[in-house]
Simulated assay, not measured.
Amino acid sequence: MYYCCGVTDKGIMPHNEDALLINKSVIDSGSSEQNVSVPFIAAVSDGVSGERSGELASKMCLELVRDIDYSREVKLDDELLGIHQKLADYSRSDPEMHNMQATLCGIAVDETGNILTFNVGDSRLYRYRSGRIKQISRDQSLVQLLIDEGAITSEERKNHVHRNIIFPVFGNQKSAPQIDTVVLEGGMEYGDLLLLCTDGLSDYVSVLDIEEIIEMPKSLDMRLHMLVKKALDNGSKDNISIIAVAYYE
């Protein structure tokens, strides 16, 4: 069994362009707690800043992911590319929804407990284990490419002039996204947490801050709300969303 807890908050923004998926529930405001059995999918999506209809893009993306009848036999890459095409086609058919786009980061747990991670854009997946946080996903962004090439440091990422430039995401009409699907090496152990979040959190809360808050002897729901508050206190100017997934026998 798995316990999933999620929070999404519009922050200082007038609208929330983030959304969460926990099993079969898509949430675009507030919080949710669920005990779930395998197979299931959990994911976060962020309507791309500067693009029209971000709210609809993230919610529609996750509703289409929700409808995947996931199992170990499903070719998830193909299913996700199909979702990208549906978003692109929808935005072409309606001028009001022109160029609607969204990031997507999540996990798919099959009936045997194997965990497949997937990512498009700059939302993130972390694993918390034995008091330490490790980033599992890789940002699909220009600044990450510059870091990989040694042109800038990780610390310089926060204030880089091109920090908001990301590679093609779901719904992009010019290029299909490159979907990173990777089996989670080492899986999950008792006491682990998987954390999925949008950049409204990860850009403003350090790994050390996440570790400190996750270690607190409080309910998981309370700790996630504390992370949201920490991001706001640190000046987050974006919507903030996070899901925590815990495994128990």
Rank of each mutant, 00 (worst) to 15 (best):
M100W: 09
M60C: 09
S137N: 08
A176C: 07
Q144V: 04
S45Y: 02
Q85M: 10
H98P: 00
V169A: 07
K134G: 00
D94A: 10
T181S: 13
R138E: 07
S91H: 09
G113W: 13
I41H: 08
I41P: 05
D139R: 10
R92Q: 14
S53T: 03
E79D: 07
N99V: 00
R124H: 06
I166R: 06
L62H: 06
R66F: 06
V182Y: 09
I107D: 01
S137F: 04
E149V: 01
K134L: 04
E73C: 08
D148L: 06
D180N: 12
H98E: 14
F170V: 11
K75M: 11
V74Y: 03
D180W: 02
L64G: 01
F170Q: 10
T117H: 11
K174M: 11
V161S: 14
D89P: 07
I165R: 11
I115L: 04
Y126L: 11
E149S: 14
V169N: 06
G54H: 10
A108D: 03
G131N: 11
E73P: 00
A176W: 00
G47H: 03
N114V: 10
R124C: 08
T117S: 15
F118T: 09
Q101L: 05
Q178K: 12
S137M: 07
L64F: 10
F40D: 12
L81A: 01
C105N: 13
E51G: 00
E73S: 14
Q178L: 12
V74M: 06
I107Y: 01
G150R: 11
D180R: 05
M60E: 14
N119D: 00
D110I: 07
I165V: 15
E96F: 06
G150C: 12
R138F: 02
N159D: 15
G50W: 06
T103L: 01
R157L: 02
V38C: 15
V120A: 15
E51W: 12
S58M: 03
A102L: 05
L76S: 12
Q135P: 06
L116P: 01
E155R: 15
Y126G: 13
S71P: 10
E155M: 09
A43M: 01
A43Y: 00
L146Q: 04
D78I: 12
S154R: 13
E156I: 02
I41C: 05
D148V: 04
D122A: 02
D89R: 14
A176L: 13
Q144T: 05
Q135N: 05
Q85E: 14
